[in-house]
Amino acid sequence: MSAPAQAHPKKWLIAYNSISASLWSIVFFNTVFVGAFLGQPSLFDLTGKITIAVQCLAVTEIYNSAAGVVKTPLFTTVAQVLSRLAVVIGVFLVLPNSPANYHWVYITVCLSWSITEIIRYSFYAISLRGEGVPQWLTWLRYSTFLVLYVTGISSEVAIFVLSLDEAATAVGKWYSWLFIAILAIYVPGSYILYTYMIKQRRKVLYGKSKKTQ
């Protein structure tokens, strides 16, 4: 592939990652400041729509992986994106009156997602610009997931569990069974995603340290 042909997807990825980092920063500050000053239920009422919109933009990740624009495994990308879409669309959008939306797990899921994505998108944006990623940002990219993936996935699971009754009442019994099926998929899906990131962490952090010795 010629240099001009490579330039277009690179510019697109720089723009996408930069914009995504900015949007997730909005979600983070909304959660912190609105949560601190107003709390629930105002937090979800005021921030729910922007959280849904920002997360839905992540479908672009699936396209980038499927088209070979990025090297991230397609299965891993699809699993992570769809699990979050199930939360924002399946619960936040379809079940606006679910008790999960006004529970503290809404705060923990938004913080877990936003911190993870601010770090991840900033890392890739800087890397693609060829400016040299600061060591501290590289460490954050491949270390914070050890905690944030656990808090994020636990919060997602809690959201589905808290929404079971509302799903059956507002939509139908089949909808609550759909949530149960999603929860069953979380066990192998979370394991695959978490172990993939652990392998990447070893490769990037410890791989580099071995080369410098």
Rank of each mutant, 00 (worst) to 15 (best):
residue 109 V to M: 13
residue 90 G to W: 05
residue 63 Y to D: 06
residue 71 K to I: 01
residue 77 T to C: 09
residue 60 T to M: 11
residue 106 Y to I: 01
residue 53 A to V: 15
residue 144 T to D: 04
residue 144 T to I: 07
residue 90 G to Y: 03
residue 101 N to D: 08
residue 103 H to N: 15
residue 103 H to I: 07
residue 145 F to M: 08
residue 111 L to R: 05
residue 73 P to A: 04
residue 118 I to P: 08
residue 80 Q to W: 06
residue 67 A to T: 10
residue 55 Q to Y: 03
residue 97 N to H: 14
residue 57 L to Y: 08
residue 69 V to W: 06
residue 66 A to T: 06
residue 152 G to N: 08
residue 103 H to T: 05
residue 133 V to M: 15
residue 80 Q to P: 01
residue 154 S to M: 04
residue 118 I to V: 11
residue 146 L to P: 10
residue 56 C to M: 12
residue 144 T to P: 07
residue 119 I to L: 03
residue 104 W to P: 01
residue 50 I to V: 09
residue 149 Y to D: 14
residue 54 V to Y: 01
residue 60 T to V: 09
residue 88 V to D: 06
residue 74 L to P: 02
residue 118 I to C: 10
residue 147 V to D: 09
residue 100 A to M: 10
residue 49 K to M: 14
residue 107 I to E: 04
residue 100 A to V: 07
residue 94 V to A: 10
residue 163 S to D: 03
residue 127 S to Y: 12
residue 74 L to Q: 06
residue 150 V to N: 10
residue 49 K to H: 08
residue 78 V to K: 00
residue 64 N to P: 07
residue 140 L to C: 12
residue 123 F to W: 14
residue 98 S to W: 06
residue 160 F to R: 11
residue 144 T to H: 07
residue 97 N to Q: 15
residue 158 A to G: 04
residue 128 L to M: 13
residue 53 A to K: 12
residue 95 L to G: 05
residue 151 T to Y: 11
residue 139 W to D: 07
residue 104 W to Y: 14
residue 66 A to F: 05
residue 147 V to R: 09
residue 117 E to L: 07
residue 57 L to N: 07
residue 159 I to P: 03
residue 89 I to D: 01
residue 59 V to Y: 02
residue 80 Q to L: 04
residue 87 V to K: 00
residue 144 T to N: 04
residue 105 V to F: 11
residue 125 A to Q: 07
residue 58 A to K: 03
residue 159 I to V: 14
residue 112 S to A: 15
residue 147 V to P: 09
residue 133 V to T: 15
residue 132 G to T: 06
residue 96 P to W: 12
residue 130 G to C: 06
residue 48 G to E: 04
residue 120 R to K: 13
residue 138 T to P: 05
residue 135 Q to D: 14
residue 51 T to E: 14
residue 76 T to I: 08
